[in-house]
Design a protein around this nucleic acid. Structure first.
Lengths: 369, 369
DNA sequence: CCACTTTGCGTAATCGTTTGCACACCGAAG
DNA sequence: CTTCGGTGTGCAAACGATTACGCAAAGTGG
C-alpha cells in the first residue's frame, strides 16, 4: 500500500499550508489492483490473471474485454505480487566486473536490448571498486534475494563456492567471456583469435612479428593475456618463426600501455619488428600512435593488428580480429532464455562465440629489406 | 549446517552419521523461509523480521541469536515477499539512452557502486536501439510494475506525460544530465563549462579561437551542442573577439568527427585559428590527431581544449574542463536516497554539478606572429 | 507498593497475484 | 438419452514476508 505521505506527489513546489480537508486517497492511481480490473470487467480476479498472463484458458471475448479494461485503467501487474505467487520474476541478474569499458558496456547493452524485447528486466551488479567485499555482498546477499530468475556472469571466474551458492537457488546460471566448469559458458577462443591475427601477418610475409600482450601479473579474467600470447606463440612456432623477449612487451590493455610497449619494441632501429600483434585494439591504437611519434609509417614501415574491433578501430583504420560484444550479450541472453524454458536435452556446456578477421589499412606486406 | 546449536542438532540434522565430510551446504534448497529461522531461534516470525530488518524493537540477545541462526542457515529474505508486504523494494530503476559510451557507462558505474553500498539493487533500462517503441514500453510497462522505489533518469528529456506517469506512482524521480520542469535535476552548466574552456584560451592570449561543436541537427539530449556553442560565443563576445563561420565546424561528438572538423579548420594556412575549443574530449582528441597529420605541433602551433576529462585525455595530455560522471552518478543516487527518506524541507529542484579546468599540455600561449 | 510507561514479543491480518481444484456447460460419441 | 472429454470460470489456498495491536514483564517515580 502506498503510504499516505503527504507531499510526495506534488513535487514542484512546497505544498500550500492551507490545504482543504485532505482527500483520503489522493488519486492513488498506483494502488489499483487486479480486483479493480476484475470488477469492472465483470469477471473474477483469477480470470483477469489468466487473460493478462496468457496462462490458463480464457475465451477470446473475455480476454478482449479484460485487456480493454486493463488498458483503460492503466493497470500494470505488481511484479512483486506476481513473483511471489508464481515464483518467476521476469528479471535476470547480470554480474560484471566493470562497466566503463567498451567491451563490457557494449555487451551489457546487447543483453539489455534482448531482455527488454522479451519483457525481462535487467538488474545489474557491478563489482568494481568494492573489491572482495563488494563481490561477497553481491553473491551472499543480493543475488540470493530471489529477485532474479537467472544470472548472467560476465567475465567472472566464479569460485566453486559462488557457483554452488547460485545453483542451490535452482536458477539458471550462464557465463559469458570465460569457461567455468559445470556452467554453461559462452567463450571466445582467445588462443585461436590471437593466432589468426598473427597468421594474417605471417601470410603477408612478415617474419619479425612482435607481440604486445597483457602482463602476466595482471592476468585476471580468465588469463586473457596469457591465452592471447599463447596463440601468438603457437602461430609463430607453427611457421618456424622466432619469438623471444625482444619481440614481446607487456602492457595493461590500455592505449597508453600499448603506446609505451610499442615505443620500446620499435625504438631500436637495428632489429626492429616489421609487425606487431597487439592483444587488444586499444593497445594496438597505442602502437599506432607510438609508431607515428617515432616517425614510422603504418603500414609501410610496420604493420599493426589488434583484437576486438573496438569502436575506435574503424577511425584508425586498424586491422583487427573482431569479436562482437553486443552479439555476445544477445546470445548469452538467448541461451539464458532457453535455459529458463522447461528444457531437457542437455546441450553442450561450452558454446563458442564467433570472431573474424577485419582487414583495414594498418597491415601490409613487410618493407623490402 | 554447522551444528553449534546444541538444541537444534537433534531435530534438524537428518544426515546419516556415516556421511563423509560433505561441504556444509548451508542452505538446503531455496525453500527456506523466515519461519524456519524463527523455529530454530525459538521466536516468532515477526521477531525474526524485526531483528533482521532493524524495524521495531528486539532485545539485543534475541537479535544476536536470530542473526546467528540466519547466518548459519544461509537465510536471505525474499525480496518479493518483503516488497509486497512493506511496499519498499530496495531497488531503483535507472533509465538511460545509451550505455556503450564513456560518459554513460561511467555514470552508471558510479550510481551502481553507491547503490550497492546502501544495499539497493539497480535495475537498468537502456533505451538505445529500440527507438520510440522501446521508450514507450519502458515507460508504460517496465517502470510501472512496482519493481522500483525510485527512478533515476539519465540525460533524458522526459515528456510531461512520462513525468506524470512516473509521479503518479508516488515514487521519487530524479534526473541527471538535464533539467526537467518539476523534477529534481542534477545539471551541469554546459554554457559556463564551455565558456570556461574558451576563457582559458583567451587568457593565454589567443584571439583566433575556433569551435568544434555538435551539429545543430544532432541536438538531442538537452541541446548539449547548442549550450556549449553558446558558452563559446558568449565568452568570445565578452572579450570582444570575433566568431564566425570560418571559426566553427560542426561534428558529431566523435573522434572522427573532431578529426574532420579540425582538418577543415586548420586546413587553410592563411587565417588559421591558433586554438580550438572542442565541445567534447573525444572531438578534441580528433583535433589533436588532425593537427598532427597536418604537420602542426600542439600546443606550439595550435592549442586544443576539450570538455569532459575522458579516460583517454590524460594519455593525450589534453587540457579540458572535467566533469565527473562517476561522481554525478553517485550524487544522483545520494539525492534519490534523501528523496526516499521521509523528507519535508523542499530543497532546490535544480542541483548544480561541479566542473573544473584541468590544464595539461595541449594548451599554451599562441605562437608569436 | 501502586499506577504508569517502556520493552519485547506473539497473533493475526494484510500485501496483490497465481493456480489447483471443482463445477457447470456444451457438443460429440456410444 | 446417457456418458464423456474439453472449455471457461470462480473459489480459495498459497507465496513469504511486514506490521498494527495487544499483552505480559520490567522499569520508574511518588
Amino acid at each position: 500500500m502506498t503510504d499516505t505521505l503527504p507531499g510526495a506527489v506534488g513535487g514542484a513546489s512546497a505544498q500550500p499550508p492551507t490545504q482543504p480537508p485532505v482527500p483520503p486517497r489522493p488519486a492513488s492511481a498506483g494502488s489499483l489492483g487486479i480486483t479493480d480490473v476484475a470488477k469492472l470487467a465483470g469477471v473474477s480476479a483469477a480470470t483477469v490473471s489468466r487473460a493478462l498472463s496468457g496462462n490458463g484458458r480464457v475465451s477470446a471475448a473475455t480476454r478482449a474485454k479484460v485487456e480493454r479494461v486493463a488498458q483503460e485503467l492503466g493497470y500494470v501487474v505488481s511484479s512483486n505480487a506476481s513473483s511471489l505467487a508464481s515464483g518467476r520474476t521476469r528479471n535476470v541478474g547480470v554480474v560484471i566486473p566493470y562497466l566503463n569499458t567498451w567491451y563490457f558496456s557494449t555487451l551489457v547493452e546487447g543483453a539489455a536490448a534482448t531482455l527488454r524485447e522479451r519483457g525481462y528486466d535487467l538488474t545489474l551488479y557491478v563489482l568494481d571498486g568494492g573489491g572482495a567485499q563488494a563481490r561477497e555482498s553481491v553473491f551472499e546477499n543480493f543475488l540470493l534475494r530471489k529477485r532474479v530468475d537467472a544470472v548472467l556472469a560476465v567475465a567472472l571466474e566464479l569460485t566453486d563456492d559462488e557457483v554452488a551458492r547460485l545453483l542451490t537457488l535452482g536458477k539458471p546460471l550462464v557465463c559469458v567471456g570465460g569457461l567455468i566448469p559445470g556452467v554453461r559458458s559462452l567463450v571466445i577462443d582467445n588462443e585461436r583469435v590471437s593466432a589468426l591475427a598473427t597468421e594474417h601477418l605471417i601470410g603477408l610475409g612478415h617474419t619479425r612479428v612482435a607481440h604486445v600482450g597483457g602482463a602476466v601479473e595482471l592476468d585476471a579474467d580468465f588469463h586473457l593475456g596469457s591465452a592471447r600470447r599463447l596463440g601468438y606463440d603457437t602461430a609463430m612456432a607453427r611457421h618456424g618463426l622466432a619469438t623471444g623477449d625482444d619481440l614481446y612487451a607487456a602492457a595493461d590493455f590500455t592505449m597508453q600501455g600499448g603506446y609505451h610497449a610499442a615505443k620500446q619494441l620499435l625504438g631500436r632501429p637495428d632489429a626492429r619488428p616489421t609487425a606487431i600483434v597487439a592483444a587488444s585494439d586499444e593497445m594496438a591504437i597505442g602502437c599506432l600512435l607510438a609508431a607515428r611519434d617515432l616517425g614510422l609509417s603504418v603500414p609501410r614501415d610496420v604493420s599493426v593488428i589488434g583484437v576486438d574491433d573496438h569502436e575506435l578501430s574503424p577511425f584508425f583504420g586498424l586491422t583487427t580480429v573482431a569479436q562482437h560484444p553486443d552479439v555476445q550479450g544477445r546470445r548469452a541472453v538467448d541461451v539464458l532464455m532457453t535455459e529458463l524454458q522447461p528444457h531437457e536435452g542437455d546441450s553442450a556446456l561450452q558454446i563458442d562465440l564467433p570472431y573474424e578477421l577485419v582487414v583495414r589499412s594498418t597491415t601490409a606486406r613487410p618493407p623490402a629489406p
